[in-house]
Design a protein around this nucleic acid. Structure first.
Lengths: 218, 218, 218, 218
DNA sequence: AATGAATGAGCTTTCATTCAT
DNA sequence: AATGAATGAAAGCTCATTCAT
């Protein structure tokens, strides 16, 4: 499935990927039939197999693209003058918006990863990459005496990633009703509180919880 | 499917439900075929339809039973002399253990609910019931001046349920490696911290974050 | 595929096997579609898979049945008073008639065995079993001084099996035109001649070329 | 498919034929896909249809080429001074070696001819052409009083072609294990014996059983 | 009630062949 | 001539569900 393609071929392949994203989003992984994808793309049944081996194959391409998009959306960092609280709020806001944009696909990955071992592994890895960033921040803050030293960083990082990501899951996928500014503000405040960052609010230049906001899959 | 059954019929029905739980747990919803269930139950293929309409039908029965079990496991409350921190820790411990015991089934429901609208609604409802308890506690604590009054109770309750439940999900379903006592302690401490309960630790009789923490599905 | 069947099941299974033999004979292995078999048997497409895993599966059942039939047809031996020439002629006649009856299926097995390793092995084994009988006869005759001692028994046995079986193949499958009595007589005579049995014709009780005539698949 | 080709076209066509022989030999007729041939030839999928109508079409070209080759390999005759036994041995040796060289293709044709009526006819015709040569020899020998006059020439010729060709089939295609010199010698001796050529061994200038022995397809 | 056979819609995948460039 | 993308008819197989006993 990696023979080089002509321009036309590349176009068709893209059409199929776009179609797949639409259909996966609409029907979920399992309810998506190859036929649905080709129909959506306006090509013949058999054309699918000129480009992909299986539904899993195209799904992983779609997911990669979504991850890429989310990574970009989470990339903006505040400058060095910002306070930790500002940083947390900024990162949380980014995360929430990125999640909202891609909610369907993120939920989809969740759904699939609990079934297919291959995707489960990928999903765990992505999550690990992002909690690792949280963990480093926490470690730094603890070394700097900025927060509760008794919290084990890895555990705390996982807990925070859980809080934000699952909140978004309930919000965007399970259709709980929240107001954006208030949600971001509340999550940010609870995040800071939970680590015992209170009292350090105005110290600029603290570590960044940042990507903390576990892209896409946190 | 609810006509009254003879004793024999009732026994067969139970055998099928037991078998279904085993098989669902082993193979997941989709990989479970009706024949797998009847084989496990030691009855004939066709017998299934004497008691259930479909795979969804028996699945919902299995899930109800699991929910029932979890509710019981989360029901033990501390007496009136306990401090809020003790209560939080107690409830968190209960939740963690209940989750662990039923992790397979909880994950299963998660998986299914993102696919089938019917189960999605049920899952939302269960979650709502439990966050509602958290929410009431928070409201009470705020009225009693025991915690940060600026946090909107519904949002905070959802965030805390997310933190604990998704932590357990990563732990028991995605096989992250945590140590039980430390995990419970850390989650409890972050829970209390995040609400700004510090300084109130020793006030006995506060509300109970409790099993509140969303049974089975939080 | 070996669960015990009820009478009805057994009947259906037999219907499918009968149908398969007809269709295989008519269309060959490759041109036979599962649908053709079920149509011929008058049952539904899916019913096939209640009894067989695949086309190969049912084919091997059909072939076994044919082998069985041929073995029976080749089983009649002459009494002890017969001369070698009589024995050879008798055995050749049997072989020719058995081949004719089952020509379609024998050719089919030949066709399939050159493609599918599994059937190739089976086919070689059957052939080996029958040439082994020829070989033993030849050895005995040589020890008894009844024939040309310079012919290596295994080679000679293979050559004779080839002569008769391939003659029949050309005759019944490739539609060469021969007259039965003359064919049998000629083959018998050449068989005896080739071994140098001339001059011993009238000695009664010699070894039996017999099943020599490689049943079904020689 | 026989419009005149430019030099380039002719080269491409040859490349395809060469590739086809390789691939047919490697994978058999059925497992050979058009794409396998073009891939082996290093040209594009669609190019195939510039030169051939179908897989059958190119197959018949390949087979013709193989037949041609075999005919050449069988063409060497002994001079007039040779005895019949020498001639038979010489011709048998030639046949065995030619078969060995082309065994894959010969088996292939056998396989295909039992399926496709078109190739079946061609195969019968080729066989007939070569047994006809045997038959003429036998007739000549009988007229010259050199052998058993009671054997009907056409029947005997068919039997001998069967003996040698099917022996080779078992040897080279079904992987029976024989030693070359001994095999050739045994087959030759049995050939002569079966016709009752004994006692005439040393008469030079007898007819030639010859390459007669059915090229390629005997 | 219990059984297990029968059914057929539904989906995936392959690949010879055609088409447009 | 050469290319490689596009096509869609087959065919196999699964399995929930219905039926007959």
């Amino acid at each position: 499935m990696s023979r080089t393609l002509t321009a036309r071929g590349e176009r068709t392949r893209q059409r199929l990927i776009d179609a797949a994203e639409v259909v996966f989003g609409r029907q979920g992984f399992l309810e998506t039939k190859i036929t649905d994808i080709t129909a959506e793309a306006g090509s013949a049944n058999g054309s699918f197999y000129n480009y992909f081996d299986s539904k899993e194959d195209i799904f992983s391409v779609v997911i990669s693209r979504v991850n890429e998009r989310m990574r970009e959306q989470l990339d903006d960092r505040l400058g060095p003058g910002a306070t930790p609280r500002e940083r947390i709020e900024h990162a949380t806001g980014q995360y929430v918006r990125a999640y909202r944009t891609n909610a369907q696909m993120v939920a989809l990955l969740e759904q699939v990863s609990s079934v297919t071992p291959e995707f489960k592994a990928a999903r765990i890895e992505t999550r690990r990459r992002y909690t690792a960033r949280n963990e480093r921040s926490i470690r730094r803050w603890q070394e700097a005496g900025l927060m509760d030293a008794s919290l084990p960083p890895r555990y705390a990082a996982e807990a925070l990633a859980s809080m934000v990501s699952n909140f978004c899951y309930m919000w965007f996928t399970m259709e709980a009703d929240f107001e954006e500014d208030l949600a971001i503000h509340t999550l940010s405040r609870m995040w800071a509180n939970s680590l015992g960052l209170e009292g350090f609010d105005d110290e600029p230049g603290g570590g960044v919880p940042s990507g903390s906001s576990s892209a896409g899959l946190g």
